[in-house]
Structure formats: C-alpha cells, structure tokens
Write a protein that binds this DNA or RNA. Structure first.
Lengths: 203, 203
DNA sequence: TCATTGACATACGCCACGTATGTAAGTGGC
DNA sequence: GCCACTTACATACGTGGCGTATGTCAATGA
C-alpha cells in the first residue's frame, strides 16, 4: 500500500508551505540576491517549476515569505500590547517589543534590509501599514484621554516606528548589544515621554 | 597633431569620475540589481575592464558612488546648520534638511533602499557615522547649555535620524508630498520639543 | 471511464557577472 | 633616446542563475 493520498488541496498547501519555508531560510541566511532558486527548492525536495507555478517568480516567493513574517510580528505585537495594564504602558511595551524584534537576524535581513530593496518602500507594504495603523490608533486614543499632546497621530506614528527601527539596527550591529539595548530603550522612553501633556505623570 | 596628452594621473582620475558618474546614474534610475555593467560602462565610453581595474567589482563601484553622495549630503547639512542663529535652530534645521534630502529620488534609491541591501547596515558605513556624530555633538552641546534634558546623546541621535529617514520615506511615497511634508515636519518639531527641559522656551 | 484540468518537472536560451588574457601607451633608468 | 617594465584598459571566455516553453502524470468530475 502506498502512502495514503491526502486530498489534493492539502498537498498543494503543503508544497506552498515547504517552498515558503525553504525560501525563508535561504533569504535569511544568504540574502535575497545570493539565494539560488535551484538550490533551495531542491532542498525542499522540489524544483523551480513548483516555485514558478505557485509564486510566479522569485520576487513572488519573497513577498509570500515577507507576508508570513509580517503576520507573525503583528500577532506578537498585539499580544504584548493587550497584556499591558494601561494604554500608555501598552503603547510603550509594543514599541519596545518592536525594537527587540528588529534584533532578530531573520527580521533584520529579510524585512529591514532586502525587503525595501526588492519590494520598495516598506510603508507601502500592506502589513507595514497595519502595524503603523495600530500605533496610530493607540496615539489617537491616548490623545482622546488627554494623555498626550495634540499632534497628528499618523505622522507621529511614522516617526516613532522609524526611530524604533533605527534603534534596532544600531543595537544589532553594536559590539555590546545588551548594553546598547538598555541605552536605546531608555532614550526611546525619554523621547516618548516628551509626547505627554506637560505635568502629566506617565503611568 | 593629436589631442594634447594630459598627464596619466589626470586621465585616470577622469576615467574614475566617468565610471562613478555613469554608475551613479544607472544605480539611481534602474537600481543596483538591474544596472548592467556592460551598459553603463559603454555609456561612459568604456568597458567593464576599466571598472574591474579601478573598483574590483560592481559592489566596489557602488561603494564609491555612495561615498560621493554621502560627501555631498554632509557638505549640504553642515552649510545649513552653520547658517542658523541659535544652536537649537541649527539642530532643527539640519534634521529637517535631512528629511528633505531623503525626498530626492537618487538618495531614496541609492542610499536608503539599495545601500543597506548591498553594503549592510548604514550605521556601519564610514560616513553615516559622520552624520550621526554631527547630530550627537549638537545634542551634547545643547545638553551642556541646559536646553535639552539629560539623555544619552548618541542613542537619541540614532532615534532622531531614524525618525527623519522614515518621515522622508513616508513623504516621498505619499500621494500629496507637499501636504505630507508639512505634517511630518510639524510632528518632528513636536517630537524634538519634547526633548527640551520642561518650561524652557524653544528658541 | 474518459476528458480535462492543474501541479509539478525538464529543457532551453539569454543575460550578466567575474576572470584570464591580450595590447598599447606611458614611465623611469642608462 | 632607447629599452625594459609597469599599468590602464579592452577582449574573450566560462559559469551560473533566471525565466519560459514544453512535457508528463495524477487527480477530479461527469
């Protein structure tokens, strides 16, 4: 008896998942440009034929990989902000978590380095906007509560996420990431406290 | 009579300059990955042979192009901060100028998009550090004057330049760059004012 | 059961990079 | 002023990677 045949749709999903996983590993380790489609599809027990069938081209697979990572990031961020006691704390936690995620080599390479070069400005990616939107929504709520000053929320959200990402890059490439991380987070908190309405205690 | 022979060293400098200029144009318009060395060297009246001789490889030429652009940016920034009446104003002007420079397509593409993918983290580039250093030095001085709060200057400089860059990306890709630019600069000013010692007027 | 669809593999051509080699012009010693 | 030598390039070649066109076989549905 041959191995039980799963329904076709399952086989397809499995193939897609294998390709995405293989591509993800290759992109993360050798980078987009140096990742050979022949190599990493073979690693997944397939050929480029499968890749072109499902994703159109190399860039298409990269988009799928990025979408997967983005999704994971968003889930993690939402969990963190949901756990916080106050909205302000959730806001801080979420952003600091963002910084810390950006320390992971896979995210560094795929999302922060190759992503923009291959797919263009991250702000245009469907999900990056989702993350920005979350920060924006938080700021709007915080403004409504009278906690933060009256500033255009989206603009500020962009500035904040930029600062976070850059902080992450700095940390990841520093000689002593732990020490740098402490300094960065501290500076980030200070920057955020500047947003509070004067005299209002940060809680 | 043949064309007057310039000394060899001049010819070499000229060749290098021509290659850098041609590469710069190609990288800016089609991007690093899509720029064909055969094409743009021919455009400069040369071949890949010259390129390999002077720059080692494609990446080597890219580094040279980036160094040239970086240099130009630094000169412009220094001029701007030098023109300001107060140190705080110079600090603001310089950063806002940074945002505005990041709107230029050439800088977007070469410095902000392809640069990190080809050469790695910008914070490690020799010159990016020079720009960061300038911001850091400004912050140190502002702290000494008692104008801004006591925050690790380098960390804050990193956060600020990250915010600037991201703001620029946002502006460049928005539907109405002018309107977005106004919002971004306003938010940036607000973010910076949060750094001031409480009660201190920004001048 | 048979026609059809679709998921993949195979085969091919092209382009681009890098290297090895060639050549001609410039440079320094005598 | 000639000659050995260096050096700034051009030319020629091999290789590898991408994309496309084509083939094949299994799964589905009437």
């Amino acid at each position: 008896m041959k191995a039980a045949h799963k329904p076709r749709s399952e086989m397809i999903a499995e193939t897609r998942a294998k390709l995405i996983a293989a591509g993800r590993r290759a992109f993360a380790t050798t980078g987009y440009a140096n990742a050979s489609m022949d190599d990493f599809t073979a690693e997944a027990g397939l050929t480029r034929g499968a890749l072109y069938h499902h994703f159109g081209d190399k860039k298409g697979l990269f988009e799928a990989v990025l979408a997967q990572i983005d999704q994971e990031m968003c889930v993690r961020l939402n969990e963190i902000s949901a756990r916080a006691k106050t909205r302000w704390q959730g806001f801080l936690d979420e952003n600091i978590a963002y910084i810390e995620m950006a320390l992971e080599p896979e995210i560094q390479r795929i999302v922060l380095r190759d992503g923009p070069a291959v797919l263009g400005d991250p702000a245009q990616w469907p999900n990056a906007n989702a993350c920005i939107s979350a920060i924006t929504a938080n700021l709007v709520a915080l403004k409504a509560e009278g906690l933060v000053r009256d500033i255009d929320a989206e603009a500020m959200a962009r500035l904040i996420s930029g600062a976070s990402l850059y902080a992450a890059q700095w940390i990841a490439n520093s000689e002593d990431p732990d020490a740098t991380s402490i300094k960065a987070v501290k500076a980030f908190r200070a920057l955020m406290e500047g947003l509070l309405v004067a005299g209002r205690p940060a809680n």
